[in-house]
Design a protein around this nucleic acid. Structure first.
Lengths: 187, 187
DNA sequence: TCCTCCTATGCAACGAATTGCATAGGCAAT
DNA sequence: ATTGCCTATGCAATTCGTTGCATAGGAGGA
C-alpha cells in the first residue's frame, strides 16, 4: 500500500487539506495513483495519529474551516525508508485487453466504437500532457531536482499515451480486417 | 469488476479447474489482469451459482480430485453484454512514478538500483514476449480471428515493454545527472 | 425564492482483495 | 526417514475500496 506515500509526496510538494488533496488526486496525481476523498480522509487521520503529518486548523470566511496538513519528520523518514524498499510487482488491470480477447467469442465489430472512445480519450490526455509540458517546463536545461523528476515522470506519461494511441490504431486495423475479410491477391 | 469476464475468456479459450486458472493468471493472463487463487475460487463459486459456468468433478489418480469449469450459455451472453458496455476508466497504481517524485525529497541516487531492477525485469518480460510471438505467430498473415486478437494484445504488451525500457533509461539518465551535476561548457 | 453547485469533512455499510493458515495425498531428493 | 515441493481446494480475519448519505454555509443563476 502506497497511498500514504503518495499523500506524503503531495504534501511535501505543497501542504494542503484533505479536500485539496482529493482534488489533486483527481487531476495530476490521479494519472498514476487514484484515490477517493474517503480514502484520503481515513488515511490522513491514521497518518496524523502516527505522527507522519501535522495538522493545523485554518479558519476561512465564507466557507467551512479546513485542516491543513503538512509532512512531519516521521513522515519524511517513512518515505525515505520506503524509497529503499524493493518493489512489489504492480498489479495490472487492463480491461480493454480482456475485452479484445473476449471479442473472439462474439462479434469483433461490436468493439470498434469502444476502442474509438478509448482512442479519443488517450488523444485528449496526450494533448493535455503536451500542453502542461510546454507550460511547466519551457526550458528543460534549467531545472532543479524536483522539477527534473516531475518532468521525467511527465515524459513517461507522454510516451505511454503515444504508445497507446499507436497500439489502438493497430487494434482498430485488426478489428476492421476481421469484419471485412479481404480477398488477397485480387487486382 | 471484470474478473468474472477475464475468467470467462480464459475458460472459453480452454476449460480448466480453479487451480489451473490461477496458474494461467500467474502466467499469460496475469500480464493484463492479476488475481489470486482465493479470488478465483470465490468468483467461480458465484459464477456457477449464477449459471455462467458449468462444473464437472474429475477424479485423478495420484492427486486430488478437481472441478473442471467451462463457460455456459449464460456466461457467453453476459460476456457479450459486457463487451457492448462503455468503459469504466481504469484505476491506475504506478508505484514507481510516486517513488520518482518522492526522490526529490531524499537522495535521488538511492533510487538507481530500484530502477535498474525494474529495467531488468521489463527487459526479461520483453524477451519472453518476443519469444512467445515467434513461437505462436510465426506467420502473421495466416491467423484466424482468435489468434489475430491474441496477437494484437501481445503486440500491445511488446510495445508497452519497449516504451517502458526506453523510459527507464531516461529515468536513469535523469537520476545520474542529479547525482553528478556536470560543469557544462568546461573543455 | 428556490434550486443547484461548491467547499469541507465525516459516518456507516457493504463488497472486494489480501494474507495466513489448513487439509491431504503423492513425488523427488537428501 | 525426513524434508520439502506440487496439486487442489478452502476457511477466517483483516484491510482496502466504494457508495450513499449527512451536515452546513455561501455563491450564483432561473
Amino acid at each position: 500500500m502506497a497511498l500514504e506515500h503518495a499523500i506524503l509526496v503531495s504534501l511535501l510538494e505543497q501542504p494542503g487539506s484533505g479536500y485539496e488533496l482529493a482534488r489533486r488526486f483527481d487531476r495530476s496525481i490521479g494519472r498514476f495513483w487514484t484515490a477517493t476523498h474517503q480514502q484520503i480522509y481515513r488515511v490522513l487521520r491514521r497518518m496524523e495519529a502516527d505522527g507522519w503529518v501535522a495538522a493545523e486548523e485554518v479558519a476561512q470566511d465564507g466557507r467551512p474551516d479546513k485542516k491543513v496538513y503538512s509532512a512531519a519528520g516521521a513522515g519524511r523518514a517513512a518515505l525515505a525508508g520506503w524509497l529503499r524498499e524493493p518493489v512489489e510487482p504492480e498489479s495490472v488491470r487492463h480491461e480493454l485487453a480482456v475485452k479484445i480477447r473476449a471479442a473472439a467469442f462474439d462479434d469483433p465489430a461490436a468493439l470498434v466504437s469502444e476502442v474509438e472512445r478509448h482512442r479519443e480519450s488517450h488523444a485528449a490526455l496526450l494533448a493535455r500532457y503536451l500542453h502542461g509540458e510546454q507550460r511547466d517546463f519551457p526550458d528543460p536545461t534549467a531545472l532543479d531536482a524536483r522539477q527534473a523528476l516531475q518532468h521525467v515522470v511527465l515524459r513517461g506519461g507522454i510516451e505511454y499515451e503515444r504508445m497507446t494511441l499507436a497500439w489502438l490504431d493497430d487494434v482498430l486495423a485488426t478489428l476492421h480486417r476481421l469484419s471485412t475479410p479481404s480477398t488477397p491477391g485480387s487486382p
